[in-house]
Design a protein around this nucleic acid. Structure first.
Lengths: 365, 365
DNA sequence: TTGACATCCGAAAGCGCTTTCGGTAGCGTG
DNA sequence: CACGCTACCGAAAGCGCTTTCGGATGTCAA
């Protein structure tokens, strides 16, 4: 529990004051650009600070100001272990954008026997964080419920099923899957299946909705067998796809909730002695780098995780600003991005269909 | 730059003191288990603290104690973007173990135009962190050079080429690849190639060393063409493997620096009309979940990233303790773990070889 | 009963900053 | 020359906690 003593050689504001023959207050105001400091002393102070490598103690500053410039991020509990391939990218984006405003990113894990909300509450009450970023939300998510009443600014990457009164950034998953299905329909497919994810996760739900909407809008029938939910990794995809292929009338195309699932599907197809992109077309979602290296290369929808992280950070900082101003015009930014469809070799017209144009890699919309 | 005001309703130690009719000092000592507090008042204080949800301000505590119970982690710069599939697992392990001792994990990104060392130095000087964890080290790594002179406790996951005087946890990459090659040799392979990684990264170097050692120990020739370095993703693997397959005498087996590379290789083999695990055996490294879902399933070496994160955290806390005690017996823990070889379908005896036993999934050593 | 000791708690001085308030010097104006 | 102003800086009071020091009790033996 005992930490590390601050470095002895680190110069404090008192040292600087002594060195310059000024008072600590003056130093502080000079460095913080108060208007009542003469320009030349301000410069003098700044130069000395640079030269001596003075860096104000963020702890003391926090205490004096009563503010915390730190956003908290609670890692998804290991129990529901759907490894997010983009978690580190999002974190990277978050940290990068926050750093530009002098903010920090605090990462917390959930110890066994506790839940996310307990962890978040402790972080808030101990004053360690002043805002939260949340990702991978469920349709109904206790973290969001907590935050909505906690009085801490927060922004959600993704959104819950009810989502009118808080700030979020999400990708239009429904539209993405409408687009994906329509793309396949445009190629001539009619028998399209879905390898869907855990329906507690809202993104999986939304994608499924998109799938069904596009199918019914096109007047296409979807046998129940064609919709498989709850697939979270390549392994599950392998089995589910094998089942699909064993169906009396097997689908000519399958859209997958993630690239990991799609890659599993591709391997299942090959294992069955068929050819992905020929006998069965495959479309994924994520834009995983590995999707470019599969055989056939994976047609997929992609979202920019790093950029999303940055945007969430910006929204967070704005939310904090709003809160401090206590402005009455409650702005609740909610941003919806669109996923881009990346065409590669894994999706082509069905073999029975004569319109057999080949598709090279290109990015549409 | 302005942060979030601490919650108004959060009770402070002064409030608790008032509530209990005790002095702040007594409260503090009671909560921190000083021996000079009567057991029954200690209990009284504790109960009241729980009831009122008192949580000491970590900022004030830090300032008073002059310590920071926070370890810093600087995300690898986005420029050399070798996405580490295990980064989030390591962070998870770090955060989880640190939390058990009341420590925090601070994540920092490297803004454009700055380097890692600058970021680290600022974190140290501003007193935001009291220790560092570092991963993905290069053979010669400026971060380690900096830390060795900075006086901040740190632990490295991995190690540099010279590594006698600091604390690290690494996997025996060399032995892992010796094992992998020997395994293939045991199957009857003689023409074994290496798809290696960026040699600036020490793990890639070590694995290459292991490959060469095992080959030469077995008296096997390795034509220069058989060793390809600098492959960092599936895409690079795809091309490199294609080149290998086009060789006049193509290898019967290939070991890959990572699973991502191995999966790329599998696809290249299939693309060439050959059968991975039959015409060419493939061995990877990482134990990626997806390796179980490929066709054929990937034989690979695995390491436990989450556990590594926890162990690094433990070492870190121990290093801090050592430093505070100023003990003279300089303990520098250096831990070497072994990777486990997971046998799956992608590695089998060469086709020419009569000893053609099939290999089901199982874990050896 | 008195002194010597523990036992337990309050007082107060910080930790390194910020920020308000007031005071001094310098300036221009009448 | 006195007045009022502005421009600039120092003094000092915190922020919420920790920790040392000493003082007030109570206890026990002599």
């Amino acid at each position: 529990m005992t930490g590390v003593k601050q470095r002895k050689d680190a110069i404090s504001i008192a040292g600087l004051a002594l060195h310059l023959g000024l008072s600590e207050g003056t130093i502080s105001r000079a460095l913080n650009n108060y208007p009542d400091i003469a320009e030349k002393t301000r410069k003098r102070v700044r130069d000395a600070a640079n030269e001596l490598g003075y860096q104000p103690s963020s702890t003391a500053r926090r205490l004096a100001r009563g503010v915390v410039e730190t956003v908290g991020f609670v890692l998804p509990s290991r129990r529901d272990h759907l490894s997010d391939p983009f978690l580190s990218e999002i974190l990277d984006g978050l940290a990068a954008e926050l750093a530009m405003s002098g903010w920090d990113l605090l990462l917390a894990a959930v110890p066994d026997g506790q839940d996310e909300v307990e962890v978040m509450d402790r972080l808030v009450r101990s004053g360690k964080i002043g805002a939260f970023a949340v990702t991978r939300v469920k349709r109904s998510d206790p973290r969001v419920d907590y935050l909505r009443t906690a009085g801490v600014p927060f922004v959600v990457h993704g959104r819950t099923s009810k989502h009118s009164d808080y700030s979020w950034l999400d990708v239009d998953n429904e539209k993405a899957f409408v687009d994906a299905v329509n793309f396949l329909i445009g190629l001539g497919h009619k028998n399209i299946a879905l390898l869907g994810g855990d329906l507690k996760m809202n993104f999986a739900w939304q994608r499924r909705e998109g799938f069904q909407k596009a199918m019914s809008d096109a007047g296409l029938e979807t046998p129940p067998d064609y919709i498989v939910d709850g697939i979270s990794d390549g392994m599950g995809a392998l089995e589910a796809m094998a089942t699909l292929l064993a169906l009396p009338s097997r689908p000519t195309a399958v859209v997958c909730v993630t690239d990991a699932v799609a890659i599993g599907a591709i391997h299942a197809i090959q294992k069955a002695g068929l050819k992905a992109g020929h006998d069965v077309s495959v479309v994924g979602y994520d834009g995983l780098p590995m999707g470019r290296a599969t055989e056939p290369a994976l047609t997929t929808m992609s979202q920019a995780s790093y950029e999303a992280g940055r945007e969430v950070a910006r929204m967070l900082l704005e939310a904090v600003r709003q809160k401090n101003i206590k402005s009455l015009n409650k702005e609740i930014p909610q941003i919806l991005w669109e996923a881009k469809l990346t065409l590669r070799a894994s999706a082509n017209p069905p073999v029975s269909n004569p319109a057999n144009k080949s598709h090279r890699e290109e990015t549409k919309k």
